[in-house]
Amino acid sequence: MSNFPFADYITGAIFCLAVGTTLGGALIAALSTRIIRGVCGLMICCIGLAGLYWFLHSPFLALMEILIYVGAVCVTIVFGVMLSETDEPAQEKQRSFAALWGLGAVLVGLGVFFAVSRLSLGGPWKVPAAFANDGSVQAIGLALLTTYSLAFELISLVLLVAILGALVIARSGRTKE
């Protein structure tokens, strides 16, 4: 691969594309007033993130990002929007103390930004010697059931609670007719 002319530049360009897609998608998601465009931004952002994971030698994680966030989460959000939203841009409602709320948002945003920057710039970065695993089915299965079994079980518990919650809400809506 390295003997191909401009290989480094091409790799760099693809990396910039992934970063740009992530940032652009995030900006669309945050700035658009129509919720459906916001979801599209989220989707673009997730695809860019998947590209970044791919660059970090985690193709399994990258594909899971697309399968779950684009294929499931975004679709569910859009479905929810479709059933409820009229897709008119939101009415400009002047909130009391609007400036104060804005200031609070800016402060929180800046705080998070500086905290994350400080962590990522100042923290010690361990460079892994090789890939964590080869991404094969066996390696992933072993990792999920040994090293990360607690996290795996916790996530399944969270999902169970979510399903039960959805059932409770749906049921109560049905009986109160």
């Binding site: 459906i36 599209c40 989707m43 193709p59 399994f60 594909l63 899971m64 697309i66 399968l67 684009v70 294929g71 499931a72 975004c74 679709v75 859009v78 479905f79 479709m82 897709d87 080869d134 991404g135 094969s136």
Partner: peptide, 25 residues
């Protein structure tokens, strides 16, 4: 020749729904 080709097909196949839905919407 990807090691996780099967997952690749399914993850990109799932975008199709989103596209049809956005087109309709």
């Amino acid at each position: 020749n990807l090691n996780i080709g099967l997952l690749f097909v399914f993850s990109f196949g799932s975008i199709n729904v989103m596209a049809l839905m956005l087109g309709g919407w």
